[in-house]
Structure formats: C-alpha cells, structure tokens
C-alpha cells in the first residue's frame, strides 16, 4: 500500500494545471451544442404521443425546420469529430491524452473497489465481528482504501468511449436514414428498418447516460456542485489533482523530483 498523499513542496495545492486546453474545450462546447440540438430535434420523434412535443411543432413548417436543424447539427458534430481525431493523431498532447484514456483492466477493478468501498458493507461486517477471520486473512475484501485514479478515471474513460461508440452508431445509421434511396439500393428494407430502430434506441441510451451519469459526475456530485468549471477555464488546482487524480499527481511529482535531483547534481558536481 502506498502512503497517503500529502501536500508536497514540489506541487503546491494552489498551483494551476491545464486539464483542458482551448482546442479541447471548444471541442467539448461544440459537442454540447450539437448533442443538445440533436436530442431536442430528434427525441420527440420517439414520443410522438406526448403533448409537449406536439406543441413544439405547432407552427407551420416546424417539422421541416426540425429536420434541417437535425441534419445541420449532425454535420457540425461530424466535423467536430474529424477535428478531434486529427487533433488526437497529430498533436503531442492529443496523443498523450489518448494513451491515458485507453481503458485497462485496472479501470474495471477501480469501479469494483470504489463501489464496495462506498457501500462499506464488508467494513461494517468486520466491525460487527462477522467473518472476522476471513477478513483478517484477506484484508483486500474490506476495501478500506479508495482506489487511486490517473489522469482519467474509469467514469471519464467510459464516457469518452460511450461518445465515440455512440457517435459511430448514430453517424452510420443516420447517414442511411438521411439517404433512404441510397440505403435501399444497398440493403433490403429490413436492414434499413434496423438502422431506424438502432438510431432511436442509441439516442435514448445516449440521452439517459448524459442526463444521469454525466450530469451527476460534473454537476450534482457534492464535490463539484453546482458545476465543475474545468470545461470553461480548463484549470485544475494542485489540490484537486492530488485528491481526484492522485496517480497523475504522483507522476508529475516524480518528474519534478527527478528534475530537481538533476539540477542539484549539476550544481554540485
């Protein structure tokens, strides 16, 4: 077990680190705008019986305009994804971020451990003296310590992958829904029907994931409530880095320690 992290003289708690640079923030803002537009102009189609959605399209040509907006937002989203991909491939920072965000086995273990740590059931049982011998022999099952996260924790990795996977599904199915004639030249009708079904359900999934999971983690979570401001200013403090991303903190600390050693070696040969 590693020692608990305390403030180090090499990284002050009020030091500012750049978590999202301008390009990343713009990509995120574009994603918010296009995603919201796509949801507003698309989701009502799944709930055509609901009065609220019907009144949304009460004026003439409303449905036509809805279609145009949906397609415009889709194109902007695609452009955004292309930009993000090029950024990821061709910038050093992009490549480094991507390396960090690849899910590993550790992420599954982190999710498992933090869940049982939060529930605290095994610690409760241990205190009550239930299975005491078992827990003494296998202290892992007490989940006493929170797992330490790197630059991206399992929640953020999952969200990123979900957006990537979801966009892929939505772009493919949406493209063929946009070009029905082309789709039906290539596929039989029953395949096209699958595109329609998938587009609808994937949208539902994305919408619920954002509303529940992402909104909790960046807004409602007491740690950041009412809102984490990283998406606006891109800044994270040394303290936040130490508590939320300890592995990244250690990595930076290690680099600085080595740099300091090197500097002192140069000074006193």
């Amino acid at each position: 077990m590693e020692e608990r992290l305390n403030e180090s003289p090499l990284i002050r708690d009020d030091e500012i680190f750049l978590r999202m640079n301008l390009a990343e923030r713009l990509q995120h803002i574009l994603l918010i705008i296009t995603f919201t537009t796509l949801i507003i102009t698309g989701l009502p189609l799944l709930f055509y019986e609901m009065k609220i959605f019907k009144s949304m399209f009460a004026f003439e040509k409303a449905f036509y305009i809805r279609g145009i907006l949906h397609r415009v937002a889709a194109v902007i989203l695609i452009v955004n994804i292309v930009w993000h991909s090029l950024y990821t491939i061709f910038t050093k920072r992009g490549r480094a971020n991507f390396k960090e965000i690849i899910p590993k086995f550790k992420d599954a273990r982190d999710a498992w451990e933090i869940f049982w740590h939060n529930v605290g059931l095994t610690q409760f049982l241990y205190k009550k003296g239930v299975f005491k011998k078992f827990f003494d022999r296998h202290p892992y099952w007490l989940f006493e310590k929170e797992p330490e996260f790197g630059r991206y924790n399992f929640i953020e990795k999952f969200e990123y992958l979900a957006v990537a996977w979801g966009s892929f599904i939505m772009i493919i199915s949406g493209f063929f829904m946009w070009n029905v004639e082309l789709s039906l030249r290539l596929f039989p009708l029953w395949v096209h029907d699958i595109f329609v079904i998938v587009h609808g359900y994937e949208a539902m999934l994305a919408f619920l994931a954002i509303i529940i999971w992402h909104m909790y983690n960046v807004h409602l979570n007491p740690e950041v409530f009412p809102m984490s401001k990283i998406w606006l200013n891109g800044k994270i403090t040394g303290h936040e880095l130490r508590t939320l991303h300890p592995l990244e903190y250690r990595k930076i600390l290690e680099e600085r320690r080595k740099a300091a050693e090197r500097a002192s070696r140069i000074k006193s040969p």
């Binding site: 004639e181 039906l184 030249r185 290539l186 039989p188 029953w190 395949v191 029907d193 329609v196 079904i197």
Partner: peptide
C-alpha cells in the same frame, strides 16, 4: 430510384418478433 430492395422486408411490422427478426 427505389429498386427491388423496397420489397425485401415488410412494412407495418417494424421490429416485431416474427416479421423482422433483425430489428
């Protein structure tokens, strides 16, 4: 330009168990 593919599959049956197994 609707081709013969329009006939390969049934209408009015989107995603019911019997008519379109894939959907």
């Amino acid at each position: 330009g609707a081709g013969t593919n329009f006939a390969k599959g049934k209408v009015h049956v989107v995603s019911t168990k019997v008519e379109n197994k894939g959907a």
